[in-house]
């Protein structure tokens, strides 16, 4: 598949501090790509490098078909849009004036400007607010205007830095629907967020960064890579000898208690082992209360990786 973003060995050092180290990844055209990591992990630096705001110390990158380099900055930036974490609006100007300024900077023809501005505002639920002074808007509304500004140039690649930060639940849902709509239109979205459930819901693939790229893949693949399959079992009374009980069931690979009369049993194939395990529990007379496949959220994946880093740092 054609790549909208291609980064190879991207490294950025500020003095002696390393913000990014040897980061390599690709994002396909039309993909919604999540970029996760703790504060200071290098997410914003990556976006800045890819949008030609800062120069990489080493490595190469290409965005929307344009190599990231000193001479191609204007060309590359005309194909992308970046929604920064803070809305960054001119508070003394109206919403329309703000967007009109950016339309001019993107070189949008003046005869199209008004239509494009009103359409962008409409898509973020701000139709009819174009005459409001930006300084009079709430944080959430400013965030929406900032998103409308990013949509204005109809970019091929859209970088969104915490797009739902400060939004109420209704506005958050609208923004998520908007991102889904962008995916349908073939726009590549590079999303940095702290909201793991948002990344899991929206993103085709996810990368977790902590100066170096820790892992990359679809949420399900990440879970499979990090966690072994397991079944969760709850019985009416604690098992007398869980070691020999679970060891006697074919396909199990160890167990651990997760509460009173509750156990997590590692298995190679949950679908094959579950019926046999259920039968064994019933036959033992322990009383089967619950048997289900253990699930791991993206948060589990994230915490597993980031806490590994914290351990290493200690």
């Amino acid at each position: 598949m054609e790549a909208a973003i291609r980064a190879r060995g991207l490294t950025k050092r500020f003095g002696s501090r390393s913000a990014l180290e040897d980061v390599t990844f690709e994002v396909s055209v039309g993909e919604v790509f999540g970029f996760l990591g703790p504060n200071g992990a290098g997410k914003t630096t990556t976006v800045r490098v890819l949008s030609t705001l800062v120069r990489p110390t080493a490595g190469t990158a290409e965005v929307a078909g344009v190599p990231v380099s000193e001479g191609t900055g204007a060309e590359l930036r005309s194909r992308i849009a970046v929604m920064t974490e803070t809305p960054g609006l001119y508070l003394r100007l109206t919403v329309f004036d703000n967007l009109e300024y950016f339309a001019g900077l993107y070189g949008i023809a003046s005869r199209e400007t008004r239509t494009r501005i009103l359409a962008a505002l409409d898509s973020v639920g701000m139709a009819g607010r174009h005459g409001d002074r930006a300084g009079a808007l709430s944080k959430g509304l400013r965030q929406r205007v900032s998103l409308a500004r990013a949509l204005l140039p109809d970019p091929r690649v859209l970088f969104l830095d915490e797009p739902t930060s400060g939004l109420d639940p209704v506005a958050t849902r609208e923004v998520r629907e908007l991102i889904d709509g962008l995916r349908d239109r073939g726009v590549t979205v590079f999303l940095t967020t702290h909201r793991l459930e948002e990344a899991e819901r929206l993103c085709d693939r996810i990368a977790i960064l902590n100066t170096t790229l820790r892992i990359i893949g679809a949420p399900d693949d990440l879970r499979r890579q990090l966690f072994s399959s397991a079944l969760e079992v709850q019985t009416a009374a604690p098992l007398a000898d869980p070691d020999s009980f679970f060891g006697g069931v074919n396909g199990t690979d160890g167990w651990k208690p997760v509460g009173d009369a509750s156990y997590r049993v590692n298995v190679r194939d949950p679908a094959a082992v579950a019926p046999e395990l259920a039968r064994a529990i019933v036959e033992s007379g322990a009383g089967l209360v619950r048997l289900s496949e253990a699930t791991h959220s993206l948060e589990d994946v994230y915490l597993q990786l980031v806490s590994d880093d914290v351990e290493v740092a200690r």
Binding site: L53, A74, R77, I80, V82, F102, L105, Y106, R149
Partner: peptide, 11 residues
């Protein structure tokens, strides 16, 4: 006022 970075990301 945080407007510098959005401006610098334009062409």
């Amino acid at each position: 006022q945080g407007t510098l970075e959005p401006v610098l990301t334009t062409p």
